[in-house]
């Protein structure tokens, strides 16, 4: 069992989990407020990675030697790409269907997702081939004795934690956050209270999309290979993490993401041939025990 449950595997699991957490944060925010399974979220993540890639090669010559500045520029590029596209998707494909059956916007979300993937893949400038992602920050491996940890893992974990705290504060402490919570609970009542619902929702998409973009950048740096279809699996995992943690619950999404990462790692180490199956079985059991997610609250049914 030494090769399965050891310090290195815990580090491995935390690394996988922190990427999931970064995507799940933006996901659960949008999800909590519009209750839309946003299939395109993984594609905002992919766009973030591509925008960072493009920005790196566009500005690389300008900032030779200034690693910190370069990192800042690519971060802005990735967040802007994810945020703007999310905003556009909301305006063009989700907003017109806001008061229609919620499943109609589910289908447009699938449509947006397919469009972004196939469009980038068909576009000659991007294309369907894998691209290697540049090392924006130098890669350093830190030896902890019985485990090796890369500086990227630490960066991922720290950023996920900072964003989680920041988002929680935004939602709990600011006026905008209050408006977001109001919209999430009851759209009609919120409107009657004078809240501009569409503005709040647009803002939510902007933040959620830019988080996805940043996650794309970090994933690109950690696993230096990007492709237009790279968002499908992580998008699905973020959805699962968000539901596992309790819909709309921000610390819950992060918790869900780390549980998924660790479950996948240990399951793969235990038996890699059926690892994915075991991870899903764990997920099902958790949900059967806690049908409203790990940190979700019990809401009384209304008639």
């Amino acid at each position: 069992m030494g090769a399965i449950f050891n310090a290195q595997q815990i580090v491995n699991g935390l690394q996988v989990g922190s990427i999931y957490a970064l995507i799940a944060l933006g996901y659960t925010m949008v999800y909590g407020i519009v209750r839309l399974i946003n299939f395109a979220h993984g594609d905002f993540y992919m766009l973030g990675a591509y925008a960072a890639y493009g920005a790196f090669f566009a500005f690389n010559a300008l900032f030779v030697g200034k690693t910190g500045l370069m990192a800042f520029v690519v971060l802005i590029a990735s967040m802007a790409a994810g945020g703007v596209i999310a905003l556009l998707a909301n305006r063009l494909a989700y907003k017109p269907l806001r008061y229609k059956p919620k499943l109609s916007s589910l289908i447009t979300a699938i449509g947006v997702s397919m469009f972004l993937e196939y469009f980038l893949s068909a576009l000659p400038a991007v294309g369907p081939s894998y691209r290697s992602f540049p090392d924006i920050l130098p890669r350093v491996n830190i030896n902890l004795g019985n485990a090796v940890i890369s500086n990227y893992v630490i960066i991922d974990i720290v950023i996920a934690a900072v964003l989680m705290v920041g988002l929680t504060l935004l939602i709990k402490k600011t006026t905008l956050g209050k408006a977001m919570r109001a919209v999430s609970q009851d759209k009609d009542a919120a409107r009657l209270m004078g809240i501009d619902i569409e503005k709040v929702i647009a803002f939510t998409f902007l933040i959620g999309g830019s988080f996805a973009g940043a996650a794309g950048l970090l994933a690109g740096m950690t696993y230096p290979r990007i492709v237009p279809y790279m968002g499908i699996q992580p998008g699905l995992k973020a959805f699962i993490a968000a539901v596992l943690g309790g819909i709309g619950n921000i610390p819950g999404a992060v918790l869900g993401a780390y549980i998924m990462g660790l479950a996948e790692t240990f399951a793969s180490a235990y038996n890699s041939l059926i690892g994915e199956g075991i991870a899903f079985a764990i997920l099902i059991i958790v949900l059967l025990v806690r049908p409203r997610g790990l940190l979700g609250e019990k809401i009384a049914d209304k008639i």
Binding site: N6, Y223, I232
Partner: peptide, 13 residues
């Protein structure tokens, strides 16, 4: 699994 990007669980083992 197909489409994986993290292989460290298997590699550690």
């Amino acid at each position: 699994p197909a489409g994986a990007t993290d292989f460290k669980a298997q590699l550690t083992k």
